[in-house]
Design a protein around this nucleic acid. Structure first.
Lengths: 195, 195
DNA sequence: GTCGTCATGTAATTCGTTACATGATTTT
DNA sequence: AAAATCATGTAACGAATTACATGACGAC
């Protein structure tokens, strides 16, 4: 999922300026899906225009700087649909919290407890951003996505609350210098060592 | 979450070569957390060694090329704990499926249906990778993470199965050229247009 | 005799971020 | 008077990927 595709996806909803695109990501409830800086948006739009996938017109507005408004061309629309139809690479979430959970035996109880608290706070914050939208977006385009998000975050919160003591109990259980397999499955070291 | 941190996290479990590190990511059940190529692992290890966070020794093995085995130094251990204690940036998942859900009105029913099927297949594949580990890893370091993953994936599958018709019903509902707000909340265009 | 595994590394390229540069207007 | 908002863009930099280069050994 590159910026180009996200630009096309947002422009499919209607024309927008580079500034608008950034606002959709930063202030919108879907910032999980993106988040991009001007330094990548403007060049991306310029390149899309060069490729003929978007067209732009300058819009002068009184009392404000002129804005360059982009919209999909027919070719852009086609490219967007092709992008959406392409087989997706599996989602990768490089999660700080996941690494902490994996490394709990090497970390102090306080570190683990704090990580759990922070994770819960973060997921709760996401829920309180999205939950008010469930009603207002029920019959809009984004209603489904809002529900998806709320459900995911709530489920994770429930899981962590239920299993936090089990994770905290793992904290600090590795003696200094102790060798633990990352995952017992494919750790050939331990097997070789045992032979 | 950069490669450096993941290297430290895996090396905290015990010494490993660059080749080992890659295997932990690619073949292990935790590839969601990472996935990195040799082109990034080897330079990362070299830099960590320069900084004094890891030490290496060459291990000659009969019939196989010699391997350079890395392990954390005291400074590396400290750096690892600091990295883990640092406040995490909120997880961002740039999800292809999420974008499709958001753009359903602009896509055909077939495209949306296929995307749903692919998503379900993908999440089910993750479950069948992780589920067999629930038992074997129950009392190991990674047990918690395995449970976390299984729960997350199963919950998402359940949600999609329950709500797929609702998403499919949205497909193709936008007329060509129609302007739809990405999210009703902060779409000033529609409000301005309505004034 | 070719392909897969073990093993390390470099170079070119892509993608994106941060910081910088500019400038009018409105709010505090 | 300072700060925030609207608005666009470039340049330097960083992080990671892909592709390339090398080479021995074992399996089929």
């Amino acid at each position: 999922m590159n910026i180009r595709t996200i630009c096309l996806a947002i422009l499919a909803h209607g024309e927008a300026s580079g500034y608008d695109l950034k606002k959709h990501w930063e202030d919108g409830p879907f910032f999980h899906l993106g988040g991009a800086s001007f330094g990548s948006i403007y060049p991306a739009l310029a390149r899309l225009e060069q490729e003929g996938l978007v067209a732009s017109r300058e819009e002068t507005q009184p009392g404000k700087p002129p804005r360059r408004v982009y919209s999909l061309t027919a070719a852009g629309s086609k490219a967007f649909i092709e992008d959406m139809s392409a087989a997706p690479e599996p989602d990768v979430f490089r999660s700080h919290f996941g690494i902490i959970a994996l490394c709990a035996p090497f970390l102090s109880r306080e570190t683990v407890a704090r990580a759990i608290d922070e994770r819960l706070a973060q997921q709760r914050a996401e829920v309180s951003t999205l939950e008010p939208l469930v009603e207002s977006e029920r019959h809009s385009t984004s209603g489904w996505l809002v529900d998806w998000g709320v459900t995911q975050f709530k489920n994770e919160i429930a899981f962590i609350e239920k299993n936090r003591s089990r994770l905290e109990a793992l904290a600090g259980t590795a003696k200094p210098g102790e060798h633990l397999p990352v995952c017992a499955l494919h750790d050939t070291d331990t097997q070789t060592a045992a032979e």
